[in-house]
Design a protein around this nucleic acid. Sequence first.
DNA 1: AGGGCTATGTAACAACCGGTAACGGCGCTG
DNA 2: CAGCGCCGTTACCGGTTGTTACATAGCCCT
Lengths: 245, 245
Amino acid sequence: MTIPRILVVDDDQDVRQMVTQFLRQNGAMALPAGTEADVRKHLDGGRVDLILLDVMLGDENGLEICARLRSEQDVPIIMVSALSADHQRMEGYEVGADDYIAKPFNPDLLLARVKAVLSRARRSSSLVHRRNTKTFEFHGWVYNAKRGEVLSPAGIQVTLSRRELALLQTLVANPHIPLTREEIAAALDVTGDTGQTADATGRAIDVLVGRLRSKIEKNPKDPQILRTERGVGYVFSADVTVQDQ
Amino acid sequence: MTIPRILVVDDDQDVRQMVTQFLRQNGAMALPAGTEADVRKHLDGGRVDLILLDVMLGDENGLEICARLRSEQDVPIIMVSALSADHQRMEGYEVGADDYIAKPFNPDLLLARVKAVLSRARRSSSLVHRRNTKTFEFHGWVYNAKRGEVLSPAGIQVTLSRRELALLQTLVANPHIPLTREEIAAALDVTGDTGQTADATGRAIDVLVGRLRSKIEKNPKDPQILRTERGVGYVFSADVTVQDQ
DNA sequence: AGGGCTATGTAACAACCGGTAACGGCGCTG
DNA sequence: CAGCGCCGTTACCGGTTGTTACATAGCCCT
């Protein structure tokens, strides 16, 4: 990658100078900016890879600027603040900052953050490394594959055990397709080391299904989502909508 | 740039111990194995980058084992033997060994061979690079390998003990790759080799993991960084960005 | 409809696994 | 020598998961 251009936005001239200099020593093209006008000038004029934005700009509110910039351009932003309280941090994220760092900061820390954000940005633009998290939705339930989180229609988080989660994952990936116990066992890697038949694996799957039902079916006795296909196995009989993220 | 895993196969406990220790000092994850069964356990379980195989195993014939392994898996093998006769060397090559070294061997020589075979296999040459100072960043944390410093997302320095630091280092070098307790122990050089199972090493790793968690996890009860892989071991499940320095 | 067979649901149990508090040994430092 | 921090061991607890046994439901045949 070419030398990254970093906009250093801070109303304190001394801070600007210091940060700018430090970044330059570390190979970046640092562009100091004292006001939002300065920022816009640079954004209009040319390429900017990252904005280091101080939360407290004399007259202007950095958070607002951040939100505004975010809504207009897709430039990574790291918020900088003298306030390290957690809620500040959260606010920073809410307005769309990519990261947050407290002042006074450790140079190593700053550099690490900058590089992290830059490489993240680069990665997202190259199709190769895209790591997509999927979210599945069915009958009001939401299953976030990455975090392994399951939310009930009421929005309450349900904790599934590892096995239950794996089962759900398998099912969700094959909606409306009847799966035999053997297939499920294979997907869950249950077999054990003695190449057991599905029967020897035995009722493990049945029991597991029961346990999952007890957690995600409104009335486990009359399952609507995880249905039994008698003589065959089980079907996930809900429509699933998938969202990449 | 993962740390290479080297299986040290020798029926003589003292030799195993010595070689293992030497390799560990030079940055490898050395896994001692006394029998073919041990070898298979490791091969089944996980990735092994290289096997150092003694020709004379008490009951078994190392050459046969070598041939057998070769026919099954594509793992580089270096044969080790007390007999330096040429025909032995030839035999070693015939059964598929990548290199051959006579006992007693010069440590430097061993290391050279190991590196050669590893790089031929286009594996990491981290045996060499490992001395580089690196800074790792994950979830806002910064770990400076040279100074052994760890900074929290808030920029506060956290003091880890020697062991905790070593554990972190091992994990950070293998993000998203589940490590067994045994592998971790090997990397930390915990047991030496007394033919102990991972169980004999006992809960040391578990406890250590717990201690590290209590320092770097926001909520140690629900670890986001250092996750448990039930029945397997532990995974460092954060994206890590690395900077050479 | 009813008998008999098989498939499935599930409660109870036991084995196993991982988290962790507590303890004690060890080495270092003052 | 006392105090302290580090670290492996142990024991206990709680959660997970496969097994078993028994109850029930579904299906086929007469």
